[in-house]
Design a binder for these strands. Sequence first.
DNA 1: AGCACGGACTCAGAAAACTTACA
DNA 2: GTGTAAGTTTTCTGAGTCCGTGC
Length: 661
Amino acid sequence: IHYSHKHKDKYKDKEHKHKDHKKDKEREKSKHGSRYWMGMKSLDGKVKKEKENGFASPPHMKIEPEEDFYHSPKLAKSLKRERDDDNDLDFKPKKIKTENDKKAKKRKQEDEFLFLFLWEEERYTDGVKWKFLEHKGPVFAPPYEPLPSNVKFYYDGKPMKLSPEAEEVATFFSKMLDHEYTTKDIFRKNFFKDWRKEMTSEEKAKITDLKKCNFTEMSEYFKGLSEARKAMTKEQKLKIKEENERLLQEYGFCIMDNHRERIANFRIEPPGLFRGRGDHPKMGMLKRRIRPQDIIINCSKNSKHPEPPPGTKWKEVRHDNKVTWLVSWTENIQGSIKYIMLNPSSRIKGEKDWQKYETARRLKKCVDRIRAQYREDWKSKEMRVRQRAVAIYFIDKLALRAGNEKEEGETADTVGCCSLRVEHIKLYPENEGQEYVVEFDFLGKDSIRYYNKVPVEKRVFKNLQLFMENKEPDDDLFDRLNTSVLNKHLQELMDGLSAKVFRTYNASITLQQQLKELTNEDENIPAKILAPPKTFEKSMQNLQAKIDAKRDQLANAKRDLKAAKADAKGLRDDKSKKTVETKRKAVQRIEEQLMKLEVQATDREENKQIALGTSKLNYLDPRISVAWCKKWGIPIEKIYNKTQREKFAWAIDMAEKDFEF
DNA sequence: AGCACGGACTCAGAAAACTTACA
DNA sequence: GTGTAAGTTTTCTGAGTCCGTGC
């Protein structure tokens, strides 16, 4: 590997005394791709190198063809090196693909070490994330378009023209009419409260009861619009597509340290009604429209700053290169900050991802020690140490999340390990032939139910009994523990260790073991390994879809029933009474069907379903899969789709067939 | 010292959009 | 061949983790 930079040369020389540099260089050049980390698929010839800062905005930057997913970063360049501005060619890393070459293998390991070295250097010096950042700012939600005059809102059966502000909020509700949300009390209450805030004083005086509001005409109108959109001609659809593409090209990319990087979310979230997950106390509240004066822009001083729309101003333009976001604003529901950041394919996210797996690999080296330690701590004299030790055991063995404490009444009531309450576990000294069984039943992240019955060590069991003594169901199980205490301890056990590293480590190591175990030479590999989880997951999803459909159907039927009732009240004839009865029966029938489906779903749940998609993206070191593919000659496309390949470009490039997690 | 708080970042499922298989 | 359903990918944004800061 050639580094013109002295200090790297020095480092390199130490490690590679006898390398044939010339050969390497040639090989490298002939290779189409290049080492991701060194980012040598540069913008050479595309970005004008503007010298010293080297980052002046390239006025006519070309778009890199999509199939080339190496929007490779110049890590080396972003590191602090003296600006002797040698040309980039000298930085070209090696592409090592020589299968039989032992040297290559060795070099690869050294490579990895070097990467680590470079990373550490960048990271621990000053926390700088970039040297140059330029972008076009966010794309705002389209302005509200008032309803045509023939689409009416009715209050108490009478048409009523709403002020634009009140009307807009009403349309948000009308668009969700088919959704289960709108039947929930909290949702309706929150919505109505916030809606009234948008009303004129006359409207406020008149509209006092949500039940008397009739949004159906509005709802039908929007359904019609979406039908019309579906029925558009090919040309019209194409036109929209082109417009989107134009917007993407203009706003969907930024320049960060010499590379044109994809932005993850360049559109500002449009206004609407807040939909939390689970039993969220704030569901239905108005999520307000974000304006330029709410927006903070982050970019380089020496970049071309994005312009606010004519006649408006940004809240602030700052130049903080210790953070990775381009745009931020404060959201009005929880008061939290929202960001516009880069795509997972970007250098900055890729590096972080890679670092995450490196931390997990370091855990691999000391996990035995740590396990021995917490088992020892189960016997500690100190309560807090015992609690901590049992908690780590759960996190390790059951992949529980850390479980930060949350403000009551601000969010749905969900828990993780440290925030478990007595009511969430049951202890069985003896259960179905097993000893010391703990039954977990609680709502975790996104209000997803965690239900599990596991036998545990006797000591753990006894400890849990101890922790639960003299406590109420809603008391904390681990009253001497919280996530910051826990993580501080973990940090002492290993640099960079925190609760979530266990998930990454355990998921990845298991994948590796399973692949080793299940893959055998004389079998046709792909079918066997890839099929079962896929079909299983699918069947689960299908069921969920059925349930959802049934729910919608139920909501519809209920509404029909309501409408029929209203009619009957007005008309008082036999015919309408009869329809009410049929509708009522329909509702009942659908309710029963829904029940059946839900039972089915929980049954399957017992079989323990794993969200394969999520772990694939977030917990499994992609290098394991890449190595496996290379080893068995399986095309990487079989495993990762385009987006995933972009996200894992670093791993695809880095991992050889003998990679060991 | 310890703790509340905010900030920045990863991870998560729902929904929308798109693609492919199938009647 | 065409319309539709099923499957897959992409987008969206909410829900966590974790750490630094300031009292």
